[in-house]
Amino acid sequence: MRIGVLAVQGAVREHLSILSQLGIDGRRVKKAEQLSGLSGLILPGGESTAISLLSRGCLLTKVGELAKKGFPIFGTCAGMILLADEIEGQEDAYVRAIDIAVARNASGRQVDSFEVMLCIKGVADDFQGVFIRAPYITRIGNGVTVLARHEGAAVMARQGNVLVASFHPELTCDMRIHRYFVEMVREHEKEEAIL
């Protein structure tokens, strides 16, 4: 199984390192053509403005097309902003792959960045969430399941093949969320095989 990590900028090597520990062939994706042959894609944390400006040509458009076809995608922090249908205070969104609205830097500036233990539906009830100038989910669309909340705010969600988190599992040694995503990718491969 080959899973790509969008490698324009940000916490790319952390995701690749976890994938490799899980025995998955992780690939850096900088261009649209590198999306072929992948079974899933991770959009890492970084600076969403920079990542969107620097994704050359039709990279993000292609990611959007794949998402519509049921291709499994996981976005953390900036990756979640890139995947959201709506971004507060901004007219345009980017990939539009999950029916949520997000607010940038909702947890505040860096001095308010924090760690907290999270209870994540279907994953773990003791996951250490690392929130860095984190975005929160402010609107949940139909068909979106909230998997975790912090002080009432939705911080992790899933709609079908798309998984998003406000925080950074890639900055911990805890691989349970990545395992959960790999399972999503396996399910999708099975479905594809039946078709």
Binding site: A7, G10, A11, V12, E14, E47, A78, R133
Partner: peptide
């Protein structure tokens, strides 16, 4: 250190 990790490649 995590915030700096997010700035990598930039």
């Amino acid at each position: 250190s995590g915030l700096a990790e997010m700035l990598k490649g930039g």
